[in-house]
């Protein structure tokens, strides 16, 4: 479904992606992990066309994504920092995004689920960080797309919202969607991810199931297994 081919990206002197190759098959939840600054967000942004790679190609549904934009209609994205125009109300923002995409959406259902009904007429500038993140989640899940990309989706969520988020993720997975997640919360990864992609120094360091990783690192605790993986590189 997605294929990254020999992807290179530099920001000035800093090499972020260094000939990265990765293939992601249709269906399932993929966790993209790695230490801070390992290029997780850059990788996702390349896929979204927000960062333009220096070299290499990205294939999404058999077509290149470089310099294209129409493919994004089949892709939902949850950005890391939720920051919206402060003078629009929640409803207006949702209507606007709907307006921009020629697709049906199930926003009412999600608004209900996250208890945003009472906040619909509030200005986005007056919302708390967690509520903004909920709005962000509604925007990311309200369309029916084959690929869903979540960048740190758990940021600022209360426990109930977190449970709902996990439910939605599972529901989307059961529909055969592909979901890419980046996060630093290992319990979340252990709970939802089918496969782990571990990035280090701009390359794929490990790709496989959670169990395979535990086995390879000889550690039953995922958090420690990952820490070992990172520590190896520091040594």
């Amino acid at each position: 479904m997605i294929e990254f081919k020999n992807l290179h990206k530099r920001f000035g002197k800093l090499v972020v992606l260094d000939g990265l190759n990765l293939e992601i098959k249709k269906g399932g939840i993929f966790a993209i992990l790695g230490p801070n600054g390992s290029g997780k967000t850059t990788l996702i942004k390349c896929l979204l066309g927000m960062v333009i790679p220096n070299k290499g190609d990205i294939i999404f549904e058999k077509k290149t994504v470089l310099r294209q934009w129409a493919y994004r209609n089949n892709l939902n994205y949850l950005p890391q920092i939720a920051n919206f125009p402060p003078n629009l109300s929640v409803m207006e923002l949702i209507e606007m995004v709907k307006n921009l995409r020629p697709k049906t959406s199930n926003s009412e259902e999600l608004i209900e689920l996250f208890g945003l009904k009472t906040s619909l007429d509030k200005k986005l500038g007056n919302l708390s960080g967690g509520t903004k993140q909920k709005v962000n989640i509604v925007l990311a899940f309200m369309f029916d797309s084959d690929l869903i990309v979540l960048d740190e989706p758990t940021n600022g969520l209360d426990p109930i919202a977190l449970i709902h988020l996990k439910e939605i993720i599972q529901k989307e997975k059961s529909k055969g969607k592909t979901i890419l997640i980046t996060t630093h919360i290992m319990s979340f990864v252990e709970e939802v991810a089918d496969e782990i992609v571990f990035l280090l120094d701009g390359k794929i360091y490990f790709k496989g199931t959670v169990d395979a990783l535990k086995k390879q690192m000889n550690n039953e605790n995922l958090e420690h297994a990952i820490a070992n993986l990172i520590a190896k590189q520091y040594a």
Binding site: L48, G49, M50, W69, A70, Y71, R72, N73, L75, Y77, P79, I81, A82, N83, F84, P85, V97, L100, R101, L139
Partner: peptide
Amino acid sequence: NSKEFTELLLAQPINR
């Protein structure tokens, strides 16, 4: 001020 919002828009199917 609208940087993050622009990023949200960039992820939508619209020409840059």
